[in-house]
Design a protein around this nucleic acid. Structure first.
Length: 111
DNA sequence: GTAATGACCTTGG
DNA sequence: ACCAAGGCCATTA
């Protein structure tokens, strides 16, 4: 499978996201050193379904905190359900208190 | 092989 | 303050 290292790194970071926390594509891209390639991160999520260890893509949202990719899940409700399971409130396809639950790899992982 | 798209973000007018 | 366009990497047609 032509999954490049970029994808793998994205999956790694996404899998490292603590429970009850969310992050944004740009944050992961920035952590990888490619803040401009935030699109690739989103594409990686799309491929996350094919990866062996499924990646918690539901914890990844855009900079606005909106569940833009919920439509790409098995069902549009799946993402919200998973988020609610993590004690993350979601309203109007948007994470409530997003900034409060925001998890920045550069700040948390980098230390 | 070229062209277009995509779960985005940043910058310019 | 708002609207528009560009850029990045990989995949698919």
């Amino acid at each position: 499978m032509p999954q490049t290292d970029f994808f793998d790194m994205v999956f790694q970071v996404v899998r490292l996201i603590p429970k009850g926390r969310v992050t944004s594509y740009g944050a992961i891209a920035a952590y990888l050193g490619a803040k401009s390639s935030s699109r690739v991160v989103g594409y990686a999520m799309n491929a996350s379904h094919r990866v062996k260890p499924k990646v918690p893509a539901h914890r990844v949202v855009n900079r606005n905190g909106q569940l833009t990719g919920k439509h790409h899940f098995d069902t549009p409700y799946r993402m919200q359900e998973l988020l609610e399971k993590e004690k993350i409130k979601v309203e109007n396809d948007t994470v409530v208190e997003f900034k409060a639950k925001y998890w920045d790899p550069e700040t948390e992982l980098r230390l």
